[in-house]
Design a protein around this nucleic acid. Sequence first.
DNA 1: TTGATTGTGCGAATATTTTCGCACTATGAT
DNA 2: ATCATAGTGCGAAAATATTCGCACAATCAA
Lengths: 121, 121
Amino acid sequence: MAAVRTYVHPETGEISLPRVLFALSEPLRLEMVRKLAEEGELDSIELGPDLPRSTLTHHTSLLRESGVAFVRAEGRKCMISLRAEDLDLRFPGLIDTVLSGYKSARAEESDDETRGSGVEQ
Amino acid sequence: MAAVRTYVHPETGEISLPRVLFALSEPLRLEMVRKLAEEGELDSIELGPDLPRSTLTHHTSLLRESGVAFVRAEGRKCMISLRAEDLDLRFPGLIDTVLSGYKSARAEESDDETRGSGVEQ
DNA sequence: TTGATTGTGCGAATATTTTCGCACTATGAT
DNA sequence: ATCATAGTGCGAAAATATTCGCACAATCAA
């Protein structure tokens, strides 16, 4: 037999704005969310290849508990996806504006690096 | 003479997304930001009438340092305003979507209260 | 069944945040 | 000058968050 791993998720209507913002305020998690938005469902190792496992679990749990991510067991793996539709129902436009702001700030940073170091491709 | 109180603010281009999200992830500060958005410039006491002064200073400093609020001395008072234009230049739409999400979640909560307690106005 | 892989949960160390009293400075009113 | 008011900054306590080793459970493959 098999006690399949299950995960509890807040319902869409119960997702709390401060908790979502808090989840997104951590650079590591913000980057995870970007990956999920761009690449769709990922297993947790793809989400944080260099992190110790227990640290990874910590962050994915936080994303799940805050309503940002949906988690399901798939064999040994742990598949994670962004709850984009739910978030958009609950807080319309939020994830999009956060991610596009993140993207443009990142683009700017790599500009800086390129100019600052004289690196040219 | 008089060493007038001055406040340092990050430039628009230096405002960091995680820091802004973190600033907004605290319920107390989120409520402050809502007040600032709705009522315009306020002095710090209007922003947190029931808070101890040093706690108030802590939160307004955090809002200022994260680029969310602009602070200026006015006599003895400390006038605080939302850096709405700067934030919108840096992270277009962010503050609006956060505040409208906050508003609708709040509306829903008071719905709950009303229904739950049978209170009717 | 054995072994390798993936994830979980505990517990402890560390770091960060929050709260707030208190002494102090700046300002304005009398 | 004196007094009351508003705000700041320090420092300490408490609360939270983060990191991660380690033992363990679940799954799959051989």
